[in-house]
Design a protein around this nucleic acid. Sequence first.
DNA 1: TATAATTTTTAGTCTAAGCTAAAAATTAGT
DNA 2: ACTAATTTTTAGCTTAGACTAAAAATTATA
Lengths: 218, 218
Amino acid sequence: MYTLAEENYIKTIFHLQQTINGAVSTNAIADSMDTKASSATDMVQKLADKKVLSYVKYKGAQLTEKGKKIATKIVRKHRLWEVFLVDKLGFHWDEVHEIAEQLEHIHSTELIKRLDSFLGNPTFDPHGDPIPDELGNFIKTEKKLLSQLNKSQFGVCVGVKESSPEYLQYLDKKNISIGTKINVLGKEFFDGSMVIEVGRDQFFVSKKIADNLYVQTA
Amino acid sequence: MYTLAEENYIKTIFHLQQTINGAVSTNAIADSMDTKASSATDMVQKLADKKVLSYVKYKGAQLTEKGKKIATKIVRKHRLWEVFLVDKLGFHWDEVHEIAEQLEHIHSTELIKRLDSFLGNPTFDPHGDPIPDELGNFIKTEKKLLSQLNKSQFGVCVGVKESSPEYLQYLDKKNISIGTKINVLGKEFFDGSMVIEVGRDQFFVSKKIADNLYVQTA
DNA sequence: TATAATTTTTAGTCTAAGCTAAAAATTAGT
DNA sequence: ACTAATTTTTAGCTTAGACTAAAAATTATA
C-alpha cells in the first residue's frame, strides 16, 4: 500500500510523462505539485527504492511498469468517481475535480468494481477523458485540438486539455460541452485566434482557448 | 480543517462518551484505537488546545460542543456512505464498515448534501444506527437489547450494538436482519441464554449474542 | 495509612514529508 | 572551452504522529 503523498507523486509523474516524453525532472514534478524541488527529489529517491520508478540523478524519473499500473488505477478511480458525481449526484463538470482528488485515494478493489458497474461501465469521464479498464488499458481516440482545425472545418467537442474551473466555466458560458459541434468560420494566422460558430452563436476565441479543447473531426 | 488522525480521535472519543458517562480516559482511547496511551495523551492535549475537548490531567477528556459537532458530522458521513454502499452498490451490511471508515473523511459539504438526497434522506444506516441530520440531531428510538426480553415476549430487530463482520455474518446465517421478528420462546436465568424463534426456525442463542442485538418491542 | 499496583503523563526517539540554504552538476553564453 | 546561469541534489531543520521507557499521580490493599 502506498501513502497519500506517494500516490500523489506517482499520479503526477504519470501525467507529466504523457506530455513530456522521456524522464520527468524533479523540478517539473515540484512545480506541478506546488512543492519544492528538494521535496520532489526526496520522494523520487524513495519511490526508486520501491521500484515504482527508475531515477538517474540529475536526469529525472520514469515510472516502471509497476508504477504505471499504480498510476492507472488511481486515474481510473478518479474518473469513475467524477462520473458518479456528475451523473448520479448532479454536480457540474467544473465542480468535481477537487472531490475526485480525494475519492481517488479510497482503497477497495471491490468498491471500484461495483461502482464501475453501477455507473454502467463508462469509458469516458465528464471532461471527455478516457477511463482505463481494470487492466489499465485506455481507449485510443482520434482527437485534435480545436486550434489544429482550419477555416471551414468543423469538429465535435470530445474533451478538454485544461480542466481548471475557470476554463470549464468559460466553456459553459459559451454553451460548449462534450458533444457540441463547432464550426470554424475564420482563423487568424498571426496569433492563431479563430472565429467559431456554436449553435446559433458566432464568436471570437483566442489561441489559448482553442489550444485546450479537443475535437473529433471524422 | 482537521487531520485524518485528529478526526479519528474525535470520532473515537465521541463513541466512547456514549457508553461510558463522564470523561474518557486516555487509556480507553488508546485501547479502542489500537495505539499507545502516550500517543493518546499527546493528541488529547493538542485537541484541548484547539478547544475540541476539555481535558484534565489524569482525569480524562470530554468533547466540547464544538467537538461534538465535528464528531456528528463524521458519523453522519460514515452512515450515509454505508447506505450508499448497501443500497446502491449492493454490498452486504458486514462488508461496508472498512470502506465507510475511509469515505467518512472526504471533505465536501455539498457532496454530503447531494449524497443525502440521492439516497432519499435516510434516517438509519444498514445496521439500524440513526443518521444524524445536518444539524447533528439524532432520532431517539425506543430500543432494547434482545437480552432484556423475557420468555413469550417478541421484538423486531432494529440494529446491532457490535458490528464486527463475525457477528453480522452469524446473524446472516440465522437470517436475522433489520426488520426481522424474533420470538423469545425460553430464557435461562443462570447464564442469560435464550431459545428464540426466527421465521420457522427455532434455536439457541448465548447471552453474548442477545446482548448485541437491538429490538423494538412496541 | 503506608505501601503496592495501576494508570497516566513526560521525556526522548523515530519516520514521513515538508522546507531553506548551500553545494554540486549541468546547460548556456560568450 | 571556460565562465555564468540554471537546475538538481544534499545537508540540516521542522512538524505531526507514533513509540518506549521512566517518572509521577492515582487507586487499591493489607
